[in-house]
Amino acid sequence: MNTVQSCPHKVPGTEGAPCRLCRIEVDNLSVTLGGQTLLRDVSLHIHCGELTALIGTNGAGKTTLLRALLGQVEYKGTVRHLTADGRPAADIRTGYVPQQLEFDRSSPVTIMDFLACSLSRRAVFLGVGKKTRERAMTALARTHCEKLADRPLGALSGGELQRVLLALALTPQPDLLILDEPVSGVDQNGLETFYQTVDELKHRNHMAILLVSHDLDVVERYADRVVLMQGGVIKQGSPEVVFDSPEFEQVFYTRGGRA
């Protein structure tokens, strides 16, 4: 794999200031849980201003890799966050949009409560402060869901919920955005809106985006790089290269059609 020595990208609108995080280098990352090896020797680079898609069948280790990058599971190997000139990037911010949530939909928690919980230290039962409310509204505006602010979390449709989660993941502005099957079970309209927003973010804010998706059409259209996984990385490169590879054929076609 080629190691890029300097970041070719500049953050738009900042007069050429280099981005805080240029790339994440993952080397020989392995995850073993309860004696079972979930991931073996994963090596890949994730770049700013690019959408990297992880694809593979269920149980291929995609979510495990995300959780390792989020620091939520123990792993062997190294994950290095680097700046444009190859130095370690200090305290990078990661935004995370989980898979479709399973939570108690009857809880009287509004979108505002939910955002305020993570944006402010003040206990939400004391009421949401004016500043926090403004911050939350700004966040919601980024994904066009200001109108949802006072709706209960449990009353949102799948697509609305994912847009709210994306709004939260973008506040404060992350250097790395991790999307774990963010729109499974969302209708076609919701899906398009979601990915257009993500695409805009990539161009305008120049963040690194890591996406897990089963929707290969979406991956083909929006991804800059594709990583095919099966217990480890079995193929990576541009969408064309990966989609035309024998490995891809073996994973997705021998089981009867595209997943």
């Binding site: 989020l70 995370y96 949530l101 809880s107 409560d113 939910f114 206990a123 939400v124 989660l165 939260l168």
Partner: peptide, 24 residues
């Protein structure tokens, strides 16, 4: 203690990995 625990608990009750990604 409740003043400090309420927000993290609420966030965790919605989604634990998400809460962790927010520093909880």
């Amino acid at each position: 203690a409740w003043g400090m625990l309420f927000n993290p608990l609420l966030l965790t009750s919605v989604n634990a990995p998400l809460a962790q990604s927010r520093g909880v």
